[in-house]
Computed example of a mutant assay.
Amino acid sequence: MRIRHAATALALATAVTVGVTALPATATPAPGALAPAAVPATTAPARPTVQDIVNRLPDAVVAGALVRRDGVGIAAGPVIPDAYFRIGSTTKVFTNTVVLQLAAEHRVDLDAPARRYVPGVLPAAYDRVTVRRLLDHTSGLPRPAATPGPDDGPGWWLRSVTPEETLRRSFAEATGTPPAAGSVQQYNGLNSLVLGLIVERVTGRSFAHELERRIIRPLGLRHTSLPAADDPRIPSPHARVYVRGQDVTEQSPYPWAEGGVISTAADLDRFLTALFRGRLLPPAQQRLVFDIPAVPSAAGNTNCLGTEACFSVGGLMRYELPNHEYVWGKTGSRPGWDNGFFATRDLRHRVVYSLNPTGQGSPLPHIKALVTAALTD
Rank of each mutant, 00 (worst) to 15 (best):
A146R: 12
P148G: 09
P150L: 01
P150F: 01
P150M: 01
D151G: 13
G153Y: 02
G153H: 03
W157M: 15
L158A: 14
S160I: 01
V161G: 12
V161T: 14
T162M: 08
T162V: 05
E164L: 11
E165A: 15
T166L: 04
T166F: 04
R168S: 07
R168A: 13
R169I: 01
R169T: 07
S170T: 08
A172C: 08
A172F: 05
A172G: 06
E173K: 03
A174D: 11
P179T: 00
P179D: 00
P179G: 02
A180M: 10
A181H: 01
G182A: 09
V184N: 00
Q185F: 00
Q186G: 00
Y187A: 09
G189C: 02
L190I: 05
N191P: 05
S192K: 00
L193C: 07
V194D: 11
V194M: 04
L197M: 15
I198A: 05
V199Y: 08
V202Y: 01
V202K: 07
G204R: 00
S206K: 08
F207R: 11
H209F: 12
L211W: 04
R213F: 01
R213I: 01
R214D: 12
R217C: 03
R217L: 14
R217N: 13
P218F: 10
G220L: 08
L221T: 11
L221S: 14
R222C: 02
R222V: 12
H223T: 11
H223I: 03
T224S: 13
T224C: 09
L226V: 10
P227M: 07
D231Y: 08
P232K: 08
R233G: 15
R233A: 15
I234P: 09
I234C: 09
S236T: 15
H238R: 15
H238K: 04
R240G: 02
R240Y: 03
V241H: 03
